[in-house]
Design a protein around this nucleic acid. Structure first.
Lengths: 281, 281
DNA sequence: TACGGATTGGAATTAATATTTCATATTGAC
DNA sequence: GTCAATATGAAATATTAATTCCAATCCGTA
């Protein structure tokens, strides 16, 4: 393999288009097939692809070799990489930034890293949020008398913002955070007519889990925001959201969680206003 | 393979979540890995995936078999299918989302709005942040004995995250938030060898301004994060940052502020480590 | 603590897949 | 039309990867 081997899909595509006129018949056939069905190249085996394209496996390999690859396998990597990038082109940017930050790219790199981590997380949640779950959570919270907000440590800032926003929207709420150790009593007042927003990420704060369990046992419906389907919060929750936050420099972003929390809060406010209008009108 | 083998990713996911409690340790480990890194399953070989997940290839196969597949290969098909579908239908999904949001299709639009506001704010700050100011602020904070963190209301979540992160980095700090009205006393302890991070946005919380003024008069250097050069905070600060946050539904994003705050914190941690090494070496 | 069953690790085996080889066919030049 | 160069097909081989198997370990139970 010399250095002019296409490493990314776009270069590869350009190279193929450039040479197609001078390619032998069967090679041209497989070239056309490759550009038309890139997904098949990414996932198929040499034999299956060759069959779909109507050529021999050996032709496929010759095609790869003419492009400078040392075999079909290396060619296939480019097609796989393309699929990966589509889904998470941000991850690579992040990795690059991390590298830059590490070898002394100054402190600006750290800032860029956090911005990139936040953007990545926002992109991810935007793609993965389930509308039905969201509606369900909003409905559940909108009919609560009091909304309890439960979070410690890294998630606490989110909880405090939710509490602030709920307050502004005149929705009765209780931030469970007592430094005086009165959380158990505070939680004790919750009834099934209330609701809870619980937020916790790995490593899950034991207090949050304990409090969530205890409030769940009182029959209070719970909306959880957490980071994995294996989170202990998930089992207690009526509705739960999985939020994957990118991290940088050992600290995870919380921007996706924030966006979700804000959206929930404001949507609950909306829903209540709608319900209020219906009752009056 | 009986008929209950999951054929699509969502069913598979649900099945795994359903059974997770009853799975043996290593199987659970690979299950968690699979749901967290679906792309790796799609592209990897049994050996490479097993290695990343920290188990033996045989465990991976047992996992597949427990789910009803007849081997790893069939399981992998489901993960590959998911990637194919996602890519082919991404544009359609996006278009559908927009249409739905437009004709009042529920609360998803609110969520999208917050994500957009956060993204916009991140883009803005990324463009406008002044590197020299950033370095100056980091230098100033890095040599402080104690970092005081000052913010109320909407900015309070940021302050609480800063305090959390500083604590993790073992940097002495004091979050000025006492509900008991002891802020004045707390601030009284600050000396010119300390430093302050003050955060406030219009409408500026009178308490924040008052406290910032008083601490500035004691000769304590201040780094301010605020939203305009006319901000009352700016006049007290040694260094200040102007952060323009987009708003949605009456609530402003705080993601840009968060990113800046995190970057400051981590950069201060870095700088201290560097200084520590120099002293020792 | 000893037993039995379930689980796991790691090597051996088997299956699959890519690549090479070689005989045959095609093409283009003279 | 013949020759040489090139391209192609098909089968043989080499490589890589999936699966199986068995011994060791762990875990719950008596």
């Amino acid at each position: 393999m010399d250095e002019r081997v296409p490493r990314d899909f776009e270069t590869l595509r350009a190279t193929i288009l450039d040479r197609r006129a001078s390619l032998p018949k069967r090679i041209a056939q497989i070239a056309a097939y490759a550009l038309d069905n890139p997904d098949d190249i990414a996932f198929g085996t040499a034999a299956s692809i060759a069959a779909s394209a109507g050529v021999q496996p050996s032709t496929l390999i010759r095609f790869a070799q003419q492009l400078g690859f040392d075999g079909f396998t290396s060619l296939q990597q480019v097609f796989r990489e393309r699929l990966r990038e589509r889904n998470s082109s941000y991850d690579e940017r992040l990795a690059a930034l991390r590298a830059k930050a590490e070898d002394g790219g100054g402190h600006r790199a750290i800032f860029d890293g956090f911005v990139a981590a936040a953007s990545t997380s926002l992109g991810d949640i935007s793609r993965s949020l389930n509308d039905a779950h969201f509606e369900e959570a909003v409905a559940l919270l909108a009919k609560a008398e009091t909304i309890y907000v439960l979070a410690k440590r890294r998630s606490y800032p989110v909880a405090s913002y939710i509490a602030y926003a709920l307050g502004k929207l005149k929705i009765r709420n209780q931030l469970v955070e007592s430094a005086a150790g009165l959380n158990a009593e505070m939680i004790g007042f919750a009834t099934p007519r209330d609701a809870v927003i619980a937020i916790s990420f790995s490593p899950y704060a034991p207090a949050t889990i304990e409090e969530t369990r205890s409030i769940a046992e009182q029959g209070v419906p719970i909306v959880a925001i957490t980071d994995s389907s294996f989170s202990p919060l998930a089992q207690f929750a009526k509705v739960w959201f999985e939020v994957a936050e990118a991290d940088f420099g050992g600290f995870r972003s919380i921007s996706a969680t924030m966006a979700l929390a804000m959206a929930l809060t404001v949507a609950v406010g909306e829903k209540r206003r709608e319900a209020g209008r219906r009752r009056k009108g």
